[in-house]
Nucleic acid binder design. Structure first.
Lengths: 219, 219
DNA sequence: TTTGTGAATAATTTATTGATTGTTCATAGT
DNA sequence: ACTATGAACAATCAATAAATTATTCACAAA
């Protein structure tokens, strides 16, 4: 029913506001219900539990990263190398700023991952598909030399693990991370690109901020 | 004074036993002092505080990894590729088993890193030196083509970050991690090795257990 | 002077309570 | 039947007190 969906949306947006302001633990179901002018018990006709509201919010947020990839893929007259480098750098910058400026987002993400490990697994899969798409494109155009596409995709994704939500692993600055990532990408590119003239594939350059990928207003 | 050193050793070994059995938080200074037949207060003439005992234990444990590298470096008639792959795989396996079988070790490591972030930084530096040594060797022998040694070292180390204390990042099995690491190393090797005949550098094979690197008996 | 003690104190941890919150469900209105 | 409520119950959290522990230090023995 459309009515049901509308109410669900209402609950989600009320919850999102409160999670953002007060954080997940400090937000009570009664408050969210109050915002929607309904009783606490009634929430449970629309969501199995409090955590499930958070999961749905996190999922939607996570899907936004697909849009970034889409944007990079749309952009024409670019090499596959440029595309791959751009999405990895965009990921580093986006997640870095997210954790830097929105502590409640990190908190929510950590809680969701802890309660629902499947969430993280699916996010990884989505990202992997984007990687694979770019690699396949580069393979088709002859830019990349790849003997085993799925395995190479896994390798490239694993090697750049550190640059998503980097603050969880290290307390380096964004500048340090960018320089380091450029080194990693240089190495990866030299493993993917095989020049006929035998010259060394040039190092990765740190790209400028792209399209100023703005933060969502509410989260 | 030699006497002072002996007492320090005594304290360290008593503390190590208790940390292993009961964990760091459940071990009291009074107990360690009792094991050494001295008063609690006297411990402070040898260590600045409880955490410093743990730091020294962790440092010594961490230095053991240097021995592994030494062993790999000693081993003759091996290519630099083999050496690099062996130490990374050895690291993966060693740290995986450590976290699997010795939960108290993980606990101690986490506490030490939290209280003394410098500890982690130094461990990383030590490991980086080992990487760089192997890469330089491969560069000198002509096996690797490296234009910027320090940067390439950082790249190789960062790309394999996930495979040290892997359980902190993922709940994959050791087998899955080994296959994944082989993919990452294949990609790295293709970035380091440049064949004149233009053929693809063959993929990394998962090495058999080396020398059955045994766990230390006490920790 | 060096080595050590044990009581005193400060810092943490643990136990306990009461209050708050998540969730269920019998019930009522539509 | 469908929608919603609010009381009931269980789980969790916050606050406090109690106990334990880390650390210091005045003092004593060597």
């Amino acid at each position: 029913m459309a009515e049901t969906d509308l109410i669900r949306e209402n609950i989600i947006s009320a919850a999102r506001e409160r999670f953002r302001h007060y954080g997940y633990p400090k937000t009570t179901i009664a408050e969210v219900a109050g915002d929607c002018t309904m009783s606490a018990g009634n929430i449970y006709r629309f969501f199995k539990g409090k955590i499930d509201i958070a999961v749905e919010i996190a999922q939607r947020e996570s899907l936004r990263s697909v849009e970034v990839v889409e944007a990079v893929m749309e952009c024409p007259y670019r090499t596959s190398r440029q595309r791959l480098e751009e999405i990895v750098f965009a990921d580093l910058r986006y997640t870095f700023h997210l954790l830097e400026n929105r502590p409640k987002v990190l908190e929510l993400a950590q809680i969701v991952v802890r309660e629902r490990p499947q969430f993280q697994i699916e996010s990884f899969r989505r990202e992997r598909r984007a990687f694979q798409r770019i690699l396949r494109e580069g393979q088709a155009s002859g830019e990349f030399t790849i003997d085993n596409l799925p395995q190479t995709t896994i390798a490239a994704q694993s090697a750049t693990l550190k640059y998503r939500y980097a603050q969880l692993f290290t307390n380096q600055t964004l500048g340090e991370l960018e320089r380091e990532l450029a080194n990693v990408l240089t190495l990866i590119m030299r493993g993917l690109i095989h020049r006929k003239d035998g010259k060394l594939v040039p190092p990765t350059e740190i790209p400028g901020e792209i399209a100023e990928q703005q933060m969502p207003t509410d989260f």
